[in-house]
Design a protein around this nucleic acid. Structure first.
Lengths: 209, 209
DNA sequence: CTTTTTTTGTATCATTCATTACAAAAACCT
DNA sequence: AGGTTTTTGTAATGAATGATACAAAAAAAG
């Protein structure tokens, strides 16, 4: 991208990598638990560099949230969009959520947004807004998959895709909450079938209403 | 209970009230964000009294979790058990969750367990275990209501009450997550009907499987 | 009334916190 | 090479943190 040679001593760190390292610390320790020492150690930079790059701790945090929320490569969502069959898609989505929240490479459990940012939402200015945007963005991305399926005729035309999208995402919060508490992926997986049925059930019960 | 006169200067605080005041601080600020100053101010005691009573900050925290998790009077659960009709019960349960997580008297948003304890689960020794117990206890309490309904014949005998209980509780985490992010109770309420249908749908779709 | 016991209140402790001053280092520019 | 610019690394800042020491206070016991 912007690898154009600039005057002055070159930076020793990659901005994206630094933010992702910071996410790992925030995610495991929470905003207040993530001390500058933990952050700089994990990011491999020293505090003056951090301050020059991100302003302050809160600035880094907001950028971490933004980076995390706008990561189009989020595995569960990609899986939801990848699988051809809608039932498979929802199933694989939930499986990916469980993988993600129980065995993330960073070692963190749960979800950065649900298990860290939510706690800090009222305490770090700007965090709540970013969190709301992330939630609504994910709702919309899930709904888009359902809408696609309606266009294909695989889901009935009156399938309430917005409602069911929120429902699926809400269910996900329950899974990552359990994962954060230390419940095993094996135990979590037992609920997948039920959840898939609940999310897609309105396709079958619609006629009954 | 133990109001038996004891020798020595009497305590100036009520233990239960102090713990509940502490919960309010932890809930809004998180474990690390809840400083001793904030805690002692809210509890109306000074730090030596706090340390004498609870050992240290972590001790107070664990007691707060225990107190919160074993509160049988939890409004949403009481409502779930109170309503005669099962559909009404689930509807009122979710409504109570929304009230609770958007307008709690303490001013805190979300849920103490989902929006505070979950973040600290890996960082405060003992918290994760208490959290798991709280989750499984709530699962069981919800399931009991479904089982009661099966015994009454209102729900079919093959209604998967354990699975649907976990589903309902997971859905709840999604609601309190949204509440913590600042989404209004009005907006949250729009999803209730869909959620109720999803939780009880297997009663109607069972025949189709 | 004195002693004993327990809690309170104040004042303080060493640590850790987020943040910054400043000089050496490493690049490009002329 | 000499000058300019930007980042690094070290070291230090004041403020806030969790936790205590200790004396005064308030009750029952003797």
């Amino acid at each position: 991208m912007n690898d154009t040679k600039k005057v002055g001593r070159p930076k020793k760190f990659d901005r994206h990598q630094a933010v992702e390292d910071a996410i790992g610390v925030f995610w495991t320790k929470g905003y207040d638990g993530a001390s500058m020492k933990l952050l700089t150690d994990a990011m491999g930079i020293n505090s003056p560099s951090l301050y020059a790059e991100f302003g302050d701790k809160a600035g880094l945090y907001l950028e971490a949230i933004d980076h995390y929320a706008n990561d189009d490569a989020c595995e569960p969502l990609v899986a939801l969009e990848r699988e051809a069959d809608i039932k498979d898609a929802v199933t694989v989505f939930l499986g990916a959520v469980i993988n993600y929240s129980t065995s993330h490479p960073s070692g963190a459990k749960g979800c950065f947004l649900a298990s860290c940012v939510s706690t800090s939402a009222g305490n770090v200015k700007g965090a709540a807004n970013l969190l709301q945007d992330a939630i609504k963005g994910t709702d919309a991305r899930i709904q888009a998959r359902f809408d696609l399926e309606k266009a294909r005729g695989t889901l009935p035309a009156d399938f309430p895709s917005a409602d069911q999208a929120r429902l699926l995402f809400d269910l996900r919060q329950g899974l990552v909450f359990r994962a954060r508490a230390g419940i095993s992926d094996q135990e979590l997986r037992q609920g997948i079938t039920t959840a898939v049925a609940a999310v897609l059930a309105s396709a079958y019960t619609a006629a009954l209403r």
